[in-house]
């Protein structure tokens, strides 16, 4: 039994000469594989470049949008403050006008009293 197995293994592992042209075929295929390996990054490169461009464009858009939004908020706040300032100015001018009108009325009454 052991002898049969040993014999089988020896038969299977016996050194055999390489088939005719094996080395040539191997050597011929090597440059093809190397070329294919070199080509892979080339196909990947445009994709990566587009990805980088898209990422940069996205970032630029986000930054631009952020700046615009900031400007919008500042502008709205400035407008709100300006309208508030105008309303306060209006109130103050009305107060001044009323006070002048009141003084004129008082002066008028005084003058009329003086006439009598």
């Amino acid at each position: 039994m052991n002898q049969e197995m040993e014999q089988g293994l020896k038969e299977a592992l016996r050194r055999k000469p390489a088939p005719e042209g094996f080395a040539r075929r191997v050597m011929a295929r090597l440059p093809e594989q190397a070329a294919a390996a070199r080509e892979m990054p080339r196909t990947m490169r445009p994709r990566r470049a587009w990805l980088a461009v898209a990422l940069a464009a996205g970032l630029a858009l986000a930054a631009f949008g952020g700046v615009r939004y900031q400007q919008y908020r500042q502008g709205q706040e400035a407008k709100r403050q300006l309208l508030l300032a105008l309303r306060i100015t209006g109130e103050m001018l009305t107060l001044a006008q009323n006070q002048v009108a009141g003084l004129n009325d008082t002066a008028g009454v005084g003058e009329r009293r003086g006439d009598q």
């Binding site: 400007q71 502008g75 407008k79 300006l82 508030l84 105008l86 306060i88």
Partner: peptide
């Protein structure tokens, strides 16, 4: 309220145009 020249310009960009007489005057 502290509005300098730059802030006033900024506010001006957001003031309503035609149709809003109050803001148009400002």
């Amino acid at each position: 309220v502290n509005l300098d020249e730059n802030m006033l310009r900024m506010a001006g960009r957001f003031m309503g145009g035609k149709g809003n007489g109050n803001e148009e005057a400002v």
